[in-house]
Design a protein around this nucleic acid. Structure first.
Lengths: 185, 185
DNA sequence: TAATGGCGAGAACCGCGGTTCTCAAGGCGG
DNA sequence: CCGCCTTGAGAACCGCGGTTCTCGCCATTA
């Protein structure tokens, strides 16, 4: 099942899509960077959309793993639930930050590529579940409601950082999340 | 300065871009729908990007006007500050809701069209100022901080509704905003 | 050694869509 | 009436990029 060539291509394409944007990265460029002939590329991925979806799936996994790693050592449940926002803050301030790939991919592919839409939805859904899980550990009432609210803050910070480049967005979101967790306790 | 043909084209193109997406609406389609020859189209707008930016500017104005109209009759300052989220809720539940054009336009044009990026930023900035202005009228401390937090919630709800189709996003955002305004009072 | 079959490299195909050009119809001044 | 300029309708141009095809190389094998 695990094809090393496939994994390599997905890793390379994911990096390219994230760094330069889905639109400007052509299949030829993926070929050149991954050193894999177009022929084999199309044997593995029937179309660019399928390749993109594979990249988004990969990024969903790596992003969530990175968040979990970031909050792993935190003991206090409230601080742990706020950890994802610290993760965002770190991310936004990284020199190579170029916004959320999922937003870009969605905007470009639109309704024309259901497979991409599905990948985006899965990612957002998984993030919301992750946040809800963290809320549950704080012993707060209305776990689902507060989880959904944190998800709104999380995506809002990402949208603002992506669209306006405002690197303080994560801080605003974190402060709001803190207030919500405090009052809901 | 006010060219009726130009206004007509912008109105038509704006509607098309919003309904079908920037990507799939071609200049030919704008021509056919607006009944304006390509030649004149390109005399008014040197490129599609410029036309798109004009549409985004128009939508920024109409959207903010609609929000102001929605909250105009509300007297209580806190309820008034929550009004924009009710506006979002109404919008999300409209049959023709297709997400935020600005997100789609940004994703597609990307860094390749600075004029589009500028229009998106201006819009987001204006929304944040509108929310901050409403917060100021509640007499709350930390006007700027809470205004920024409401902006995060607003954009977050829009991102979630756009990407996942979850029409309850505005409700989550509204509840969170209410909690923030209550605790900051 | 010679047939063969997979494979890499890159050309070629093809439709699309932004942009520009052609041309004819019609109004208007002389 | 005649030339001229504007303007509309649509064809044509052009590059781009996803996708497919060609061809020659090399390894394997009888």
């Amino acid at each position: 099942m695990s094809d090393p060539v496939r994994d390599h291509v997905v890793a390379v394409a994911d990096e390219l899509f994230y760094t330069h944007g889905v639109h400007v990265v052509t299949m030829r460029r993926v070929r050149d960077t991954a050193r894999v002939p177009l022929k084999r590329l199309y044997e593995i991925f029937p179309s660019k959309d399928v390749l993109l979806a594979a990249c988004l799936t990969r990024r969903d996994l790596t992003a969530r793993a990175a968040i979990r790693q970031r909050i792993d050592a935190i003991e206090d449940p409230v601080a742990k639930a706020l950890g994802p926002f610290d993760f965002l803050d770190d991310w936004f301030r990284q020199p190579g930050f170029h916004g959320c790939v999922f937003a870009g991919a969605f905007g470009e592919a639109g309704a024309a590529a259901p497979i991409v839409v599905t990948a985006v939805r899965t990612h957002k859904q998984a993030l919301r579940e992750l946040l809800t899980e963290l809320v549950a550990k704080t012993g707060i009432r209305d776990v689902d409601a507060v989880g959904a609210q944190l998800a709104v803050l999380f995506d809002g910070a990402m949208a603002i950082a992506t669209f306006t480049g405002d690197t303080d967005a994560a801080l605003h979101a974190r402060r709001a999340a803190q207030a919500l967790l405090d009052t809901a306790a």
